[in-house]
């Protein structure tokens, strides 16, 4: 089976509210696709329509080219964690997985395999009603994996997980994608997807705001800015501005330079005899990139404050001379890693 999710022109309204407004995107195998947008942007509605739970007013959502409702053994093709609390509180965790296995003709052995995979062995014979949110998420993930499906969907999977659980789920997402599966993960926080998503579909008010790879997005947001640390700020600004760069001061001894490559800046400063203690290409965080991206989308105004990243300070060339200890001009042109 072709392991993809294809969403084409999906539209859905609930009463007078348009939840999903002409959404189109494709989830490719072998990578983690982040599905990002503020609460109420239509992420869950879209996932419910992919699962055939809600009928779209227009458009289609196909799994490997077929609508979910026509799949004969859906758990073997799509695994989904949409609502971790959608279990009967009185039923034991193992029994919950057992009926699911029976429903798709899966061997009972699979039940024990996924219990071990998510680490629920010690509580497998306890009623799911007594589970913490984190344990329920794990049970939901076990249910999603029971049919060893090629397509996986997780709606806000890290909600309610402790740091250890978050690390675990990130590793799981990466490994599932590395095995060639298509993985769609929704989140209302871009930072949650940092380091796990390869591709992003950003939506707002039911529409696609961006459909891009994480790499492209970060490159665009970083836009060739270079961070420079120097005790001789005034001189550095003059030298660099004369070379055509735009320079902004954002601290007593730090500058943000754009318009010049890091290597060229090092050369210029050395020529001018300006000492500096550090230089690094600025790498935007995913959160910053997201803010940059959604700043243009009017829908997002007021949803969150501006990112506290660099680039927001105005150029201010008249600040008092830096009194910082100007060490030797050892240039470190490496990338600033987060």
């Amino acid at each position: 089976m072709n392991a993809t999710i294809e969403v084409r022109g999906l539209r859905k309204r609930y009463g007078s509210t348009v939840a999903v407004d002409g959404l189109s995107f494709t989830v490719e195998p072998g990578q983690v696709t982040g599905f990002v947008g503020p609460n109420g942007a239509g992420k869950s509605s879209t996932m419910r329509m992919i699962m055939g739970m809600d009928r779209p007013d227009e458009g289609s959502a196909l799994i490997g080219g077929r609508p979910y409702r026509t799949l004969r053994s859906p758990l073997c093709q799509v695994g989904a964690l949409l609502d971790a609390s959608a279990v009967h509180p009185g039923r034991r965790a193992r029994d919950h997985l057992l009926w699911m296995a029976h429903s798709n003709g899966l061997p009972v052995r699979r039940v024990d395999e996924v219990i071990d995979l998510v680490g629920l062995r010690p509580v497998a014979r306890r009623a799911a009603g007594g589970f913490s949110l984190g344990m329920r998420q794990r049970l939901g993930i076990a249910a999603a994996l029971i049919g060893d499906p090629a397509v996986l969907m997780f709606d806000e999977p890290v909600n309610g997980l402790d740091p250890e659980g978050i690390t675990w789920i990130r590793g799981l997402l990466r490994s599932l994608a590395a095995e060639g599966r298509a993985v769609l993960v929704s989140s209302h926080l871009m930072s949650e997807l940092e380091g796990s998503a390869d591709h992003l579909v950003v939506i707002g008010r039911g529409r696609v705001v961006a459909d891009t790879s994480v790499q492209e997005l970060l490159t665009a947001a970083s836009s060739g800015r270079v961070m420079l640390r120097t005790g001789r700020r005034q001189e550095a600004m003059t030298v660099l501005a004369n070379a055509g760069a735009s320079v902004a001061a954002n601290g007593p001894d730090t500058l943000t330079v754009s318009g010049l490559a890091a290597e060229r800046i090092v050369a210029l400063l050395n020529e001018g005899g300006v000492s500096f203690s550090g230089i690094a290409e600025h790498r935007a965080s995913l959160e910053e990139a997201y803010m940059e991206l959604t700043r243009d989308a009017v829908d997002f105004r007021g949803a969150t404050g501006a990112a506290g990243g660099p680039g927001s300070a105005d150029a201010d060339g008249t600040a008092a001379g830096g009194a910082g200890g100007s060490a030797s001009s050892s240039a470190s042109a490496g990338r600033e890693q987060r």
Partner: peptide, 15 residues
């Protein structure tokens, strides 16, 4: 199943 939303899991397993 409706009260516990289990019905969603049921219909995911058997659409």
């Amino acid at each position: 199943e409706h009260a516990t939303r289990m019905i969603q899991t049921t219909l995911a397993a058997t659409p």
